[in-house]
Every structure is written in structure tokens, then in C-alpha cells.
Amino acid sequence: METGMAGAADRREFVAALRDFAKAKCGTRQQRLELTKDGTLAHSQSLHKELAELGWVGAALPEAYGGGGGSATDACHLVEEMAYGQAPLFGLAVTLVSASVVERFGTEEQKQDILGSVCRGEILATAISEPDTGSDAGSLRCKAELKGDNYVINGQKTWISCAHIASRIFLLCRTGEGEGKHDGITMIDVPADTPGVTVRPIATLGGDEVNEVYFTDAVVPADRVIGEVGAAWRQMMSCLNTDRLMCGAMFLGHARRTFDDALEYVRQREQFGRPIGSFQAIRHRMADLATELECCRLLVHDLAAKLDADPHRQVPREASMVKLKVTETAKRLAVEGMQLMGGAGYTKEYDMERHLRESIVSTVYAGTSEIQREIIGKSYGL
């Protein structure tokens, strides 16, 4: 991989290598079932480690910290192709989003430590939501009190992606008060094995994805604050481009795979003496879905290109459009795919039921579709 992977030929080779990797490791249903313990795991850490050893997990991270020096477009291709190849790597996108905060706001020592660990295959988690604070995350109450050179943390977080497999949890907690509810919130790097930290998985349709995390007098050194004390909300808002882009890339990959699986089925399944895809009702439905999928691809890669041109550019409207359009389309494709496959789509013999379980929640986490519509509408002065 050449520095920055700037050339189009280099990028094509990168994408081809990613596809070959996914096909070799996850190309059969039996391989996927073994990696996920019969579909109960959303992330295979052994597979993630292999990806890291190839230098691909850190493909878009700076070379100074062990990465490949690539771009937002490279990160998109990585996440998209792993999702398309059905590689159980839910923690990949989650980790890259968390890493972007360190890359932008961390000290040099934190970057060497944390970004280096990401390139070596460790998983990061970010803890924001609480039982009473979801979309209104500015009302969080988990508290960190400074005592000497340490913070003592108490509180509860919920719906935390990958906390059960993370080596560290980036905790958003209240360290003070201010004029607004978003003031006084700080991000602290909490090692997952810190005494007083308890992680409890939440059973979901998608398997082991999210968790409750409890902090009971957990003590963390004050130098583990990421960025500025009391400014974590502004820091997170400035990183939403990456959050929504990675979510878009992941579900673009899922949507592409869902479409291809449905297409293969309607080409082969025969009724009334011919493939069902030859009937106008099915053919037109597939045409509509293909068009929607292409719109998603253009949205994702256009946003990535904008961020490649100016990594610090704030594009909340475009980022929210990506999150909204891609996840809604991925969910629609899975529902339509199941309908097109009839009873076969409902069985565990095919992957369509898994596509549905993976995509159905995509419009909820990382900012619901309703929140994305609010952001887009307000960007027009409404």
C-alpha cells in the first residue's frame, strides 16, 4: 500500500484485495456461521486481528501512528467492502469513529498509544447514551469527580456498541456545569478492565452488539481526558462527519449484498415456467431498488471526497443525508428482499433473514432517522 494510497490504481488494488480477503474468509455460509457462533456474534476479533496484521484496519490513519496514511475514501472502501463481504466486523466502523476523536483532539502521547493500538487490532467503544438520555444526550448524568490527580466515575451507560470486546471505553460524562446542558461534559479514556467498570451485554436481534456499562467508584487518572475538560460535546459534534460517513459506508455494503442476494434469487427461482425476475412486477421493483442503491453510493462517496479535500470541513447536512438515506434504503432492501424470496427469505437457510436483522436497527442507532431529518431541515433554516 503506497503512502496515502493516492492513485486510482492503488485504490482499485486495495478494493480488490479487500474483496479477496472477505471471499476467502467469509465466502461461504459455513465460514460465517463458524466465525459468529451460529450467527450470535456480530464481531469476530480473530478476523479483525487478521485484518490489522495486513495493515488494513489503520489504512486511513496517519503513518506516524502505524497507519497507512490513507483518506476518508479509503476508510469508506474498507468498511463498505467488509460489510458487502459479510465479514462479521461490527467493531471496525465503531473503532474508526472513536479513533477519529483521538486523531483530532488527543495529545501526541494519546495518539501514539491509542491510534497505535487501533492499528494493531484493538477495539474502541464510545459511551454516550444513558437509560434516560438517548437522542437528548446532552442531558447525560454519569458523573466524574476530580479528586487529586484522578477522576472518580459513577453512573450508567446503555446501548454501548462493542463495550464487551473493547480494550478501552471513551466515556462522555459530566465533570461540571455551564450555561447550557452541553457544557461541562468531558471525554475520558477508561480502560475496560478498570476496577468498578461492569459491562453487561444486551440481547438483541443482531446478536452481541450493544451493552449496559456501569461505573461504580471507578478511578481513572486525570491525564486520560481526551481533548479539553468540559468541551467533549463540541468535540463529538465536530466528529459527526466521520460517524455518519462510516455508518453510511457500512450499510451501503450491507445494502449492496442484500440487493445481489435478491437478484440472484429472482434470476434462478422459476414459477409459471420462467424466472420470477422476468415478470414485470419483479423487474420494475428491482429497477427501483437498484436506482435507490446507486443514489446511496453516490451520496457516500461524494461526502468522502469532500472530506478528503478538507478533513476539517463541517458538512452536517450532507452527513445526515448519508445516514438517513443509506440506512433507510438498507432496511427497505432487506424487507423487499424477504418479500421477493417469499418463504425462503424467512428461513435461516438463506442470508436474507440475517440482512433484515442487521439492517432493521440501522435507522435507530448513531442518530435516528427522525434526528437526521431534524438536522437536515434546520440546515435550510426551517
Rank of each mutant, 00 (worst) to 15 (best):
G4I: 06
R224C: 05
L41T: 06
A137E: 11
F272I: 01
G184T: 05
R373M: 12
I360D: 01
V94L: 02
G7V: 09
I375P: 03
D10N: 08
K306Q: 15
A305T: 14
L92A: 02
E209K: 04
G116V: 06
D20Q: 15
E177Q: 14
V94A: 04
H284T: 14
A64C: 04
D20Y: 04
E34K: 06
H43T: 11
E336R: 08
H182P: 00
A9F: 08
Q271A: 14
L41Y: 10
D74R: 03
C162T: 14
A87N: 02
D183T: 03
S135H: 10
Y380W: 07
E63C: 07
H182E: 08
K306I: 06
E353R: 15
T363G: 11
Y365T: 07
D310A: 15
D261S: 07
E270I: 13
I123P: 00
P62F: 04
A255V: 12
H77P: 00
T107H: 09
S117R: 12
L356C: 06
T347A: 10
F251K: 08
A99Y: 06
A16G: 15
S139L: 11
H312K: 15
C173H: 02
T368Q: 09
V94F: 00
V15G: 00
I160R: 00
G273A: 05
G4M: 05
L78N: 08
W233A: 02
P195K: 05
V197Y: 05
R120D: 14
S117Q: 10
A231H: 03
G196Q: 04
I160E: 03
E34R: 07
G4A: 12
V229M: 06
C162P: 01
S139T: 11
G377C: 12
T204S: 10
Y265K: 06
V335S: 07
L47M: 09
R174N: 01
R32W: 03
D38A: 13
P201Y: 03
V219P: 03
E2Y: 06
K181A: 09
A8C: 05
I360S: 10
V220K: 00
K23G: 01
Q156L: 11
F14H: 05
S161W: 06
V57K: 09
A87S: 13
C26T: 13
I165L: 10
I114G: 01
R332C: 09
E328N: 12
Q112T: 11
T368M: 09
T107Q: 08
D10V: 08
L115D: 02
